[in-house]
């Protein structure tokens, strides 16, 4: 049996009488690229906050990287990586300083940081820019660097929250190449996106509607199941049923 990196059972979060996440159950396998889709306001962010140890569930159970979301949320934080379109790197630190800062936070040794920094810079073709401030880099480079920093400490799982928003189409694909490579090394990738072509790049995709997971399978099975030509069609068919208004 494949190793599970996330197991969620009836995971629920209520704010007052509003149920943001309504008893969702699903598993994510080791090394899988798992797409987490849903309209604005469907509950994606709340679910991700619970899974990354930032918010306690109201009810239900979940383990992430083998740790319980209620009792071991600090251990979860140490064993995952996270990046989003909004929060990524420190603009006023150089490329090298950002890497050292984040790796240091995760308690990596100086020799580990030194050796791996060289490899990461080469992989990203950023060796010549290592001592430049991050704010001087184009957005696409920043996002690729932010991803490499998020997995620098070799977490078992990385959460990516709309990592490619506003990125040009060439760099967007280079970014996905990095995702594939990370998954091949055994890092599980949990990703949200508004680009439906990117949903096709995932091994499996879940679609949240009004706090529940309404569909979960590989893109090809989902398309068959909904008689749709593309993931865009699948998404529209499901999301149009939503009763809640956005956000």
């Amino acid at each position: 049996m494949r190793e599970k990196v996330i197991i969620a059972e009836k995971l629920t979060k209520r704010f007052g009488d509003f149920t943001a996440v309504d008893a969702i159950s699903f598993d994510v396998n080791k090394g899988e690229i798992f797409g987490f889709l849903g309209a604005n306001g469907a509950g994606k962010t709340t679910a991700m906050r619970m899974l990354s140890g930032l918010s306690l569930p109201t009810s239900g159970n979940a383990t992430v990287a083998g740790f319980d979301v209620y009792r071991e949320n600090e251990k979860i934080k140490r064993n995952i990586g996270y990046m989003s379109q909004k929060f990524s790197l420190y603009e006023d630190l150089t490329v090298r300083e950002n890497i050292r800062f984040y790796a240091g936070i995760y308690g990596k040794s100086s020799s580990f940081i030194r050796d791996k920094t060289t490899a990461v810079l080469q992989r990203l073709h950023l060796t010549g820019e290592a001592d430049k401030l991050v704010k001087s880099l184009p957005l696409g480079w920043k996002q690729k660097l932010a991803f490499s920093v998020a997995i620098f400490h070799e977490p078992r799982l990385v959460f990516l929250d709309e990592p490619t928003g506003g990125v040009d189409p060439v760099t967007r694909r280079e970014f996905w190449q990095l995702i594939y490579e990370a998954a091949a090394e055994g890092i599980t990738v949990f990703v949200t996106t508004h680009y439906m072509d990117e949903a096709e790049y995932c091994d499996r995709v879940s679609i949240m509607v009004d706090g529940r997971i309404d569909a979960l399978d590989s893109p090809s099975v989902l398309k068959q199941q909904f008689g749709a030509r593309s993931m865009d069609d699948v998404f529209l068919k499901l999301a149009r049923k939503a009763q809640r208004t956005a956000d």
Partner: peptide, 10 residues
């Protein structure tokens, strides 16, 4: 339409 889901964009 930046950051807006596919349904709202349409």
């Amino acid at each position: 339409t930046t950051g807006v889901d596919a349904v709202s964009r349409k």
